[in-house]
Design a protein around this nucleic acid. Sequence first.
RNA 1: GGAGAGAUGGCCGAGUCCGGUUGAAGGCGCUCGACUCGAAAUCGAGUAGACCGUGAUGAGCGGUCUCGUGGGUUCGAAUCCCACUCUCUCCGCCA
Length: 427
Amino acid sequence: MLDLKFVRSNPLIVEEALKKRGIEMGLEEFLHLEEKRRHLLYQVEKLKKQRNEVSEKIGLQKTAGQDASDMIEEMREVSREIKEMDEEIKKVEQKLKDTLLHIPNIPHQTVPVGKGEEENIEVRRWGEITNFDFNPLSHWELGEMLDILDFERAGKVSGARFSFSKGLGARLERALYNFMLDLHIEAGYREVFPPFLVNKQSMTGTGQLPKFAEDMFKIEGEDYYLIPTAEVPVTNLYRDEILDEGELPIYHVAYSACFRAEAGAAGRDTRGLIRQHQFNKVELVKFVKPAVSYQELEGLVLNAEKVLQLLKLPYRVVLLCSGDLGFSAAKCYDLEVWMPSSGSFREISSCSNFEDYQARRANIRYRPAGGKGKLRYVHTLNGSGVAVGRTMAAILENNQQKDGSVYIPEVLHRYMGGVETIENPFS
RNA sequence: GGAGAGAUGGCCGAGUCCGGUUGAAGGCGCUCGACUCGAAAUCGAGUAGACCGUGAUGAGCGGUCUCGUGGGUUCGAAUCCCACUCUCUCCGCCA
């Protein structure tokens, strides 16, 4: 959420930023309401001051044994007025807050202005696009042939967009997130294992709610939502807390299953592991001081890239343009891995700096060293390090061989009990 | 799920029965100063946040609100009443 005072004093900047995201939104009504709020507040506070003063006098008179019924009578009326105004103010504040919660973050100056995906900017590439001297299969074809993925039975047991991984497939998946966790722990991230269900306030803290309710699963009759990413529980770890400057930066890495309704994705990526209702992901989350958040973002991207480099998967780094930028993010890089079945790069990680946008929603602040000075909001960042299901798909497709077998990247061998290849039983 | 106890400032902890200089005693921690070659110990001072107004979107000053959350009673609520949330103890159930 943006700072109310900032919006109030810089409405043109905010409107301009919204325009860059392709949102036409006038703030006139908002500003009007805000003015009303301040006016009412001023009036009611004057009355409250009067009430406080007179009530103190009443107390003094009463303890002195004198009558104060005329003052009490007078204050009864004042209190009634205060009550009415308080109710009015509450309504106005609620409206203002609702609006604020629906305003996305302001893109950073370094974010290119653009309408959508097509206008993202490729920053760099790593590795060679895989070439085959045979007709390569898709990962779902490979997975079924090798009996390590089962989409059909998952359809029976759960429904569309679910899968079983089996045998060496299940082991590969486990190897992948263990490898990722170990790698990031070594890079200085502290491992946390989060709850997969969180409450509404946490979802609001990171920005999924109130605007994107249809994107996620909710437990009926309970205040529990299935997390769409570990970003939600891990960022909310420090919600409503005041950290010491000395504790910053805080780096966390978390494995979690992720759950997404994919409501708007009907007909897209219906086959395979690319777009599932449930998938595994290792997530990186940072809490840092504002001055260093952009250099921390670059570092975060490198941490995510390292995963793909060690797995020897070709990828590129893309800087998202304003129109493709996530709601809460100020700047975001996507990592896109080469996917032979589609002959294109597909998103496998998304690394964002949210500046103080989430911190303000979730009320995460820090106390500058020395104990003096005002509290400040931290900057939060997160990025996939990386999406496990898509990584598995990428390995299957990029590492397939003519006989249908798939070789396992070397760094995973020790996680696979020495298995180096998933053999094709039919060859 | 049943029974009971509790939730106060960065932390611990009084106050709640009997509503009125209690934004809140005391302690710890932290900051600054004194002492010291330096440190410890000791002594002194300071030490919540949000919002509104003023001011330069600073310091300062004035004000309002906040003692788990929300509502109620009252001229006035940490203190009384109601609902909810969470924590702890015991019992039951359970991976």
